[in-house]
C-alpha cells in the first residue's frame, strides 16, 4: 500500500481478493486432516487419509506416471524452448522470422481443448499408441512455448559481445553457447523448467485427450474419482499437489528473481566502465 497508508477500503478489497483466491483451497487442505469420511462434517484432526493414500495403488501409479511425464516433458520442453528462443533472439533477420516466432508462441493462446484434440488426431493418424510417451510429447509441445518466453526475455538483455569474445578466444559457436551463454542464462532456463514441470503436473485437458488406459495421470485420476463422490483421500492427495506446485512456483520465482537480478547486475558491471 502506497506510503503505508491504511484504509478500510484497501483492507477490505485485499481480504476479499485473497479469500476469493485461497479460501476454497484452505478448506480443502483443512478437510484433508478430517477424521470423518464425510467431507462436510468436521470430526477432529487426523492424518489417516494420508496413510490410506499410500496404500492406494491406483493413486500411486497415477502419481508415478505424472512425475515421469512431468520430468521428461519439462526437460524436453526446456531443451527445445531454449533452442527456439535462441534462434528467435539471435539469428537477427531471416526470412519468416516473425512467422517463426509467432508460431512458437501461438500455443500460448490456443484453447487447450483444441490443442488436445489436434494432438489426439495426430497420434491416431501416425498410429502411435496412446500412453506415457504421447502425454510427454503433448506436454512438451505446449510447455516449450512457455519456456521459450521465459528464456528469450533473458536473452534479449544478454550482451552479444560476450559470445563474440568467446569466439575470438577460439571457441566454436557451440562451445561459446555452452561455456558462456548457458551458464549466464541458467537461472532463466531453470525457472523455465520448473514452470514447464508445474504446468505438466496440473494439466487435465490435454492429458485426458492423449492418455491411454495404462497411463492415467493424477489430475485425470482425481477428476474421475470425484465424479463418484469426494473422498478425504482426494483431499489429502490434492493437498500434496498444492504443496508441490507451491514449492515449485516459489522456487522458480526465487531462482529467477534473485539470481537473474544479481547476474544481470554482474554482467552489466562487468561490461561497462563504472
Amino acid at each position: 500500500m502506497n506510503g503505508g497508508r491504511f484504509s478500510w477500503f484497501n483492507a477490505t478489497s485485499l481480504t476479499l481478493g485473497f479469500a476469493f483466491l485461497y479460501l476454497p483451497m484452505l478448506i480443502l487442505v483443512i478437510y484433508s486432516f478430517n477424521e470423518s469420511r464425510l467431507v462436510t462434517v468436521w470430526a477432529g484432526f487426523s492424518t489417516k487419509w494420508y496413510g490410506e493414500l499410500l496404500q492406494n495403488d491406483a493413486f500411486l501409479d497415477a502419481a508415478w506416471v505424472t512425475l515421469k511425464v512431468g520430468f521428461w516433458s519439462s526437460t524436453l520442453a526446456t531443451v527445445l524452448g531454449t533452442m527456439a528462443a535462441y534462434v528467435v533472439v539471435r539469428s537477427g533477420r531471416f526470412t519468416g522470422r516473425s512467422l517463426f516466432s509467432g508460431m512458437v508462441y501461438a500455443p500460448l493462446v490456443m484453447p487447450e481443448v483444441i490443442t488436445g484434440l489436434a494432438l489426439l488426431l495426430f497420434f491416431i493418424a501416425i498410429g502411435l499408441d496412446r500412453g506415457v510417451l504421447t502425454i510427454v510429447l503433448a506436454h512438451t509441445t505446449f510447455a516449450m512455448c512457455y519456456v521459450s518466453v521465459v528464456v528469450s526475455s533473458r536473452l534479449v538483455t544478454f550482451d552479444r559481445s560476450l559470445e563474440e569474445a568467446a569466439l575470438d578466444l577460439g571457441s566454436t559457436p557451440f562451445d561459446a553457447f555452452r561455456s558462456v551463454t548457458l551458464p549466464i542464462i541458467a537461472p532463466a532456463v531453470i525457472s523455465g523448467w520448473l514452470l514447464a514441470f508445474t504446468l505438466s503436473l496440473d494439466d487435465l485437458v490435454i492429458a485426458s485427450f492423449t492418455s491411454g488406459p495404462s497411463s492415467t495421470t493424477l489430475p485425470i485420476k482425481i477428476f474421475s474419482s470425484v465424479r463418484l463422490g469426494v473422498s478425504p483421500e482426494i483431499n489429502a492427495l490434492s493437498t500434496i499437489m498444492i504443496g508441490i506446485v507451491t514449492v515449485g512456483v516459489i522456487t522458480a520465482s526465487i531462482v529467477s528473481r534473485r539470481r537473474l537480478v544479481r547476474q544481470r547486475d554482474d554482467e552489466q558491471r562487468a561490461l561497462h566502465q563504472e
Partner: peptide, 20 residues
Amino acid sequence: VPPNKREVNMMFQSYALFPH
C-alpha cells in the same frame, strides 16, 4: 575464415569479460 579460426585476438571496447 570464422572468428575462432583467425590468429587474431581482440580486446573489446566494452571489455566483454565473462561475468561468471
